[in-house]
């Protein structure tokens, strides 16, 4: 995996397309140590080589340039990543959410987001005599 400066992200993909990486595989995001990384993979169908690229998103800006102009197949992936991780793709023409009814509230794929279902349902593993956290909830998770 190659790390790319966010400012050069879209340029890098334009270059890869010119070099024969015609097949867009996927784009998603990954939360690493409270920082978001956007990752994407493209393939050169001629020689079967692939490139996996990553860029660290500046938390203050929360944005990266869309690569959908270069790879049209990336539109769906960027829409999904925007909806689930709250990352803004600059220049993405289609901003309609895929699954969420409302984009209010914290993006569901962030580790800091406590899912409502886990707030409302009592954890069956809670010991009576001491406090213990269920797996998969934030450290400051509190039962409603």
């Amino acid at each position: 995996m190659r790390n790319i400066d966010t400012a050069l992200w879209a340029d890098e993909f334009r270059e890869l397309l010119a070099r024969g990486f015609h097949f867009f595989d996927f784009l998603t995001a990954y939360e690493r140590d409270s920082q978001l990384e956007v990752i994407a993979r493209v393939v050169n169908p001629e020689n079967k080589q692939s490139q996996l690229l990553a860029t660290l998103i500046d938390p203050n800006r929360g944005a990266v340039t869309s690569i959908a102009i270069t790879y049209r197949g990336a539109v769906w992936h960027e829409r999904e990543t925007a909806e689930m991780f709250g990352i803004y793709f600059v220049g993405l023409v289609d901003e309609r959410p895929l699954l969420r009814r409302s984009l209010l509230g914290s993006p569901p794929m962030l580790k800091s987001t406590v899912l409502a279902a886990r707030m409302l349902k009592p954890w069956p593993g809670q010991p009576s005599h001491r406090k213990q956290q269920p797996i998969g909830v934030a450290e400051d998770w509190l039962q409603v």
């Binding site: 925007a82 909806e83 803004y88 793709f89 901003e95 309609r96 959410p97 895929l98 009814r101 993006p107």
Partner: peptide, 11 residues
Amino acid sequence: MGSGNTLDLVN
């Protein structure tokens, strides 16, 4: 979520 605040889901 940036400017992605449109609520019209794909029907």
